[in-house]
Simulated assay, not measured.
Amino acid sequence: MEATYTTRAGDAWDLIACRVYGDVKYTGWLMAHNFPLLDVFVFDAGTVLNTPPLPAEQAASSLPAWRTR
């Protein structure tokens, strides 16, 4: 996986998370690693975002019961 993503006109955080990480549930992760750009809702073309690798998944046994379903 590349360490950056260059936006296309009209990209939004959730769409970028889906393209880069395969799921919108990683939108918060993406936003947390691009803090200076949090005021942008819809991007213009050409903005470069940091896209660090996702952290290792927690073992299911260490998750609360409501998170394992």
Rank of each mutant, 00 (worst) to 15 (best):
A56H: 05
N50I: 08
D44G: 05
L54N: 01
V24G: 08
A45D: 11
L38S: 10
Q58Y: 08
P52I: 01
F43H: 05
D44Y: 02
V24T: 12
L49V: 10
G46Q: 05
A59G: 08
G46V: 04
P52V: 10
S62Q: 11
D11A: 01
G10W: 05
L54G: 08
P52N: 07
N34T: 06
Y21K: 02
Q58P: 07
I16E: 03
A9E: 13
S62P: 00
F35K: 13
F35M: 14
N34A: 10
A9V: 10
D11C: 02
A60L: 14
A45L: 06
E57W: 08
T7H: 06
V40T: 03
D11G: 03
V42Q: 06
P55T: 10
T47H: 08
G28E: 15
K25S: 14
S61V: 13
R8N: 07
D11E: 07
L54D: 06
T68G: 07
F43A: 05
A65E: 15
D39K: 13
D11S: 07
S62A: 13
Y21N: 10
G10A: 08
T4E: 04
W13M: 12
E57D: 06
V48G: 01
D44T: 12
M1Y: 08
A45Y: 05
E57F: 11
A17P: 04
D39M: 05
S61C: 12
G46F: 02
Y21A: 13
A12T: 14
T68N: 12
E2I: 00
N50A: 15
T4N: 09
Y5A: 02
D39V: 07
D11L: 03
L38H: 09
P53M: 02
D39P: 00
L49Y: 09
R8S: 11
Q58G: 11
G10R: 07
V42F: 09
T6G: 04
F41N: 05
D11V: 00
K25L: 15
E57A: 14
P36G: 03
R67A: 15
P36M: 00
P64R: 07
A45F: 02
T7G: 03
F43Q: 02
P53F: 05
W66I: 15
L38E: 04
T7K: 00
P36N: 04
L63T: 10
F35W: 13
L37R: 07
T7N: 06
A45Q: 10
L37I: 01
L49E: 01
L63D: 05
N50W: 09
W29A: 08
K25Y: 09
T7E: 03
F35A: 15
R8G: 00
F43Y: 04
L30A: 08
P53H: 09
L38I: 12
P55V: 11
L38A: 11
W66V: 15
T47R: 02
D44C: 03
D39L: 14
Y5D: 07
V24R: 09
T6H: 01
D44F: 01
